[in-house]
Design a protein around this nucleic acid. Structure first.
Lengths: 270, 270
DNA sequence: CGGCAAATTGAAAAGACTCAAAGTAAGTGG
DNA sequence: CCACTTACTTTGAGTCTTTTCAATTTGCCG
């Protein structure tokens, strides 16, 4: 059986024979922000010096406060990057899927991990030792440019999270979250949109810095206000994205309570 | 009058004559994370292609959502990086003083500014055009390494802010803030510490994602609990840093209310 | 159908925000 | 030196949001 991803015959010179696993890892690297566009031979040398690690759902890839010794590239699965508090509460910083690069912060400022990473689904990650990664960056400056860009993007995302946590209330965070998910994987229709949620209320809550119950209530309120329509608890329909966006971004967001003179954005439903 | 910072005689060959202003800018660049350790001739060429901008207290250096066209280096003064909500509320992301590099995010991921920067005191910043900065990075890879390190550090700081905002209550944030300030500029004594605050309650509140009054109350409560002692409203004395740190980091932080069975950390005062 | 996990809802309480009032401190001008 | 202004801080009281606990309800799978 011939594999059409295979640019190289399996029967050619020994130097060019790639195992299935190695090929998978190659295409994983190619799909990342950081390694995309870097010549294959470079990526192959990265792979040769790397190892693969498999983690099951719920397993920890690494913990904050551990000394960082490697860069991780997600080749399969989905993981979440979180900060933990002592009582087990966690705040999700980001969700990372195939093609994500993890622990770049610790590699490039030389300290410990700044977050804990836990698998949401069974996952597979490439582990590239710190010294190897730094070597590669030295040899291929393009790589370092990509790293800078990635870090900048993460920082931008981070700023958004901070704004959300500090200036918006939970209703609005939920609205914002729904819009984001919609744009990522929803079936969009000029004004409206429909998505199936992949997370349960608890998981959404962790990501939004709140709790199950509050998020649940937010869904109810948004629905009562007519901003969303639910089909079961996972299928969301947004009749008017603009309206929802207005709500998500507004200050003093009162959904449907007694009509307040000062709230120009109150949405009511008979 | 001879200047001992001046490695170059003012009367030597024309090529080496530096104006006072240029020398100031040079030493500003030298003191940054990003440009520190880079040869002077490189820095001088950066300076030659840069301009200087002065902003007064309260003036805006740049606004989020403006297109970014330059990197900024603070050569004098102090500014705050914030996210604004429509009603004028602001969340401080960071405070940047002499030697800080601003807008790196926008330069390296090629978009708009991700925050608004406002002067806390009259300040002076070097403005290095984006294309010039990128050119410099291309020519001096060391610069790009420094940029990566700086971005990583900012990301680390950002994660800390997120954790603070989402898992700690205001009392604890104030405690944490006091500890940080103490370590930066306090007169430390094995266990105790003393600092003079530079910010007023409002400013602290913005940085901690809260309000004047709540922060004020937090100070009162911390004092009542014996964790701090105030002299006026600016001079803080921390008798036991460890105790305060425990409080700042603990979950379910009840200061001095009725004794709760589950709160192993309740601090009471007869 | 029973059993289980997730989701929802209600009620009470805690925390945080807002507005208003009063207190404090430093600086100005008489 | 004292009254007066101004800016900042503190405190009280009421309200809103969020959390927490408890009780159901829903939906799904065996």
């Amino acid at each position: 059986m011939t594999n059409n991803n295979l640019a190289i015959s399996e029967t050619s010179a020994p130097l060019l024979v790639l195992s299935r696993g190695k090929l998978d890892r190659l295409s994983a690297l190619r799909s990342t922000d950081v390694f995309g566009g870097i010549p294959d031979n470079v990526l192959l040398s990265a792979i040769d010096s790397s190892t693969t690690r498999r983690v099951n759902r719920g397993e920890i890839l690494y913990s904050e406060h551990d000394e960082a010794s490697a860069l991780y590239v997600v080749s399969r699965g989905r993981l979440r990057s979180v900060r933990l508090s002592r009582n087990g509460k966690e705040q999700v910083l980001s969700t990372e899927a195939t093609g994500s690069v993890l622990a770049a912060v610790a590699i490039f400022d030389g300290g410990k991990f700044h977050s804990t990473v836990i698998a949401d689904t069974a996952s597979e990650v490439l582990v590239i030792a710190k010294r190897n990664m730094l070597d590669l960056c030295r040899r291929y400056p393009e790589l370092l440019w990509n790293v800078s860009r990635m870090l900048a993007l993460k920082l931008r995302h981070s700023a958004e999270v901070i704004e959300t946590l500090s200036l918006r209330q939970v209703d609005q965070r939920v609205a914002q979250y729904l819009l984001t998910v919609c744009e990522q994987r929803g079936s969009v229709n000029e004004t409206s949109c429909q998505v199936e949620l992949t997370m349960n209320r608890s998981e959404i809550a962790c990501r939004l810095g709140s709790t199950r119950e509050v998020v649940s209530r937010a869904f109810s309120q948004l629905e009562r206000a007519g901003l969303i329509k639910m089909e079961g608890s996972r299928l969301v329909m947004i009749p008017d994205r603009g309206l929802l966006r207005t709500f998500a971004g507004s200050d003093s967001a009162t959904l449907f309570h007694r009509d307040k003179r000062h709230s120009g954005l109150a949405v009511s439903r008979g």
